[in-house]
Computed example of a mutant assay.
Amino acid sequence: MLGVVIANWNGEKILDKCLESFKLQEFTDYKLYIVDNGSKDKSLNIIRSYEELLNIELIELKENSGFAKANNLGIKKAIGDGCEYILTINNDTELEKDCLSNVMKNIEENKNEFDVYQLFMINFFDRHLCDATGITWDHRLLPSQLGYKQEIESITEKNNDLKGVCAGAAVYSAKSLKAVELENGDYFDSKFFAYYEDVDLSIRLFRKGFKAKLIKNAIIYHIHSATGVKTNGFKEYYMNRNMLVYTKRNLSEKQYNKYKYVYYKIIIANMKNNLNNPKVLKSLYRALIDGIKLAKETKSEVDI
C-alpha cells in the first residue's frame, strides 16, 4: 500500500479539486493521511465528505503546527501501517488519473537503484509550463528549483542535476526516511515550520547515498503558493531563517564559518529590496537574528 500524506491548512478552496483527482485514480491501493493544521474554514467538512469514497485517515490538530510537523505525523502513521513508500503532496494539486499507477510502475522498475522520486509538477494555470522537476544545490548548499517556468517540452527524462525532490509531490521509501531520522524522531525538521524542510531532508538523503529520480509521466498540476502568503513577511521569514539552519546542519563547521557571511549578505540584500515594505523588512530582520541563534543551537552532522 502506498501512503499519501497531505498537510492541510484552510484549504477549502482547493481541497475538492485535489481529493476529486484521487477519487479518479486508476491505482487504488493507497491510503490518504490528511493532517489538518487547525483549519478555521470548511476544510474538515470537505474532507469528511470524501471519507466514504476514499481510504482516509484524518488527523486533526488544534493549531497550525506547520508543513514539516504535519507531514511527520502523517509519515509516522503511514510507516506504522506498513507502507513501504510515502508520497507527500500539497493540497493545492490535481493529479492526472494515471499519476499513481505510473508512480508505482516506476518504483517497481527502479527500486534497486532509487529510493526517492519526484513527480512531474506542472503549473496549474499555464499547463505548458513546468512548476518543478526536483531540486539541486551548489557547493554552499544554496538551492534551486529545477524546471521552474520552463516549457514542459524542454524537460527531458534525463536530469543529471537532480539531487533532491520538492516535497509538494515527492515519494520517499520508508527505508530512506528511517535512515536519516533526526534524534527527536523528525524526518522533516519540525522547527523549520515551513520552507526549506524538503531541501534539508534532500541533502541528508543525498549524503546517505539515496538517489532521486524524476518520474516524468507521473503528472500533477500545482497551484504555486496557493496556501502561502507572499506579502506579509511569513514566507520571507521562514525561508531566510531556515537557510541558516539547514546549511549549519549539512556543512562542516569549517565550511559553515566560511560561507555564513554569504548567507547573511543574501538576507541583507533581501532587506534592501524590501525597504518599502515594513512588514517584510521587519520579518527579514527577525529571520537574521533568529536564524543566527538557531544555527548556533544546531549541530553540524558533517565531519570534514
Rank of each mutant, 00 (worst) to 15 (best):
S39I: 04
I46T: 13
G164Q: 06
E108C: 04
F125W: 11
F124G: 00
E153F: 10
I59N: 02
S144Y: 11
L32E: 00
K163P: 02
L251H: 15
Q150V: 07
K178H: 09
A218P: 04
T93S: 12
F124H: 13
M243N: 11
M243F: 10
M239Y: 10
I135L: 14
R241Q: 12
V180F: 08
N184Q: 03
E94S: 14
L177W: 12
I122E: 03
A295M: 03
N10Y: 08
M104D: 02
K69Y: 08
D189E: 12
V302S: 06
V262A: 06
Q118E: 11
S252W: 10
G185D: 10
E94D: 09
S39T: 09
K163G: 02
I135P: 02
L100Y: 13
A212Y: 06
N72R: 00
V171S: 03
L119M: 15
E181L: 02
N217Q: 12
D200G: 01
L24Q: 15
N240C: 14
R249L: 06
D189Q: 07
D200A: 13
L19Q: 04
P278Q: 07
C83M: 10
N123Y: 05
D36A: 03
K216G: 08
L19F: 13
D92R: 01
K260T: 09
L201K: 03
Y30V: 05
S154W: 07
K191Q: 09
P278F: 08
D290G: 09
D189G: 00
C18Q: 05
L73Q: 03
I34A: 01
L95F: 11
Y50C: 05
I203K: 07
L61I: 12
L58D: 00
N250E: 06
S190I: 01
N102F: 09
T93H: 05
D115N: 15
E94A: 11
L2K: 05
E57D: 13
E297Y: 09
K248V: 04
E94W: 09
V35C: 01
K76C: 00
S21Y: 07
N110D: 13
L281S: 08
L95V: 08
K213M: 15
V229P: 00
I47Y: 01
T93G: 03
C130N: 08
D16T: 12
E301V: 07
K258V: 04
L141R: 15
T298I: 04
H224F: 15
N257G: 13
I56D: 01
C166H: 05
L244R: 06
D189N: 14
L244M: 15
N232R: 11
K211C: 05
D290N: 15
T227N: 14
D115Y: 10
I223Y: 08
V116G: 05
N91H: 10
A167F: 03
C166L: 11
T93I: 13
F67P: 01
T231D: 14
E183Y: 10
N217F: 00
N257R: 10
N110C: 11
I215A: 07
M271V: 07
Y237L: 06
L294M: 14
